[in-house]
Design a binder for these strands. Structure first.
Lengths: 164, 164
DNA sequence: TCCTGTTTAGGAATAATTACTATGTATCAA
DNA sequence: TTGATACATAGTAATTATTCCTAAACAGGA
């Protein structure tokens, strides 16, 4: 799943985007992550390399990448936008405890038939299944750690999408 | 789908909630709607009956109803929370143009098998399918009316979930 | 290398929601 | 029926996430 600097440059060029160090770092961080980070998560990850960088730049960059179709925005609530560079059709597993989002790649879910009883002039362009529940850690411990400041990473367990 | 004042009172009592006129009106408005209104939509709908009412009360009430399990929160983006009093398992059709949300009651979608390749200690408690696309009106007219102030109701067409 | 339009960074602004708090009121018990 | 009390309401202020605005910096093509 690794991608080179030149690959990124090519992608940016293909979308008519300039290749700046900040933009490259943000996109690269998103490519490497499977945790569906928020803008602030990405800012925290990239900031050490660019001490002068503004959170604004992260928002601007994510907006540009989204409208260029290089990334997707994923939401599990109204509170914060989360982002995903995985463009292949997939679904999500969402922990109601720690808010972790895990990709579900089961191809059977990509082939759901059109539902019955919908307005006949509605044109469906995509669909996505969200499975909700509790991950191993949240199942055993408290049910609601309420972790608003990070993307599904337990305060106790250091890094990674879904602990355990 | 009509519900009496006494039914509502019973439901509230069953959850240990006091029956106040504001609370009753808000819940009743949500029960009657299929448009998945926002807090502000509900405020606008109920305000004529209670000129002194605060938007705060709507937020507080929706929070109480949600934690009591009487309503669900539905989100199609990070921008605003939308609410639903339809508790029977169902799915959603979302117009990318006008942001309308329509319930999809196809029971086949309730019986999706557990997906492959997920962490084995994850306990799935529910799932929901979101179909995205364009409703009849948005398909023909502009693709992105960007309607942030209302719940999927076209400026041109008056009231209702999905026009047409 | 130089020009030009995009990108960045900083601060201010906005929108949605939550927090705080005094007053009001539904409910229960006497 | 009445009174006490805990929950609700309304008003204002605060917070959070995001967007807007602007000047300076810089990438990419001529």
């Amino acid at each position: 799943m690794d991608i080179s600097f030149n690959d990124i440059k090519q992608k940016f060029r293909g979308c008519g985007l300039k290749t700046t160090p900040q933009r490259t770092a943000i996109y690269n961080a998103l490519l490497r992550s499977t945790a569906h980070p928020t803008a602030e998560d990405l800012f925290a990850e990239v900031a050490p390399q660019f001490p002068m960088m503004s959170l604004n730049t992260v928002y601007y960059t994510l907006g540009v990448l989204r409208t260029s179709g290089l990334i997707h925005e994923v939401n599990i609530g109204h509170t914060r936008a989360r982002f995903d560079a995985n463009l292949s059709p997939h679904h999500h597993l969402i922990c109601l405890g720690c808010q972790a989002i895990v990709d579900v790649m089961d191809p059977r879910l990509n082939r759901l038939t059109s539902p019955v009883g919908i307005p006949k002039d509605f044109e469906i362009t995509s669909h996505q299944v969200a499975f909700r529940g509790f991950c191993g850690t949240c199942r055993h411990h408290t049910r609601r750690p309420i972790n608003r400041s990070s993307s599904g990473v337990h305060p106790t367990t250091a890094k990674g999408g879904l602990h355990g």
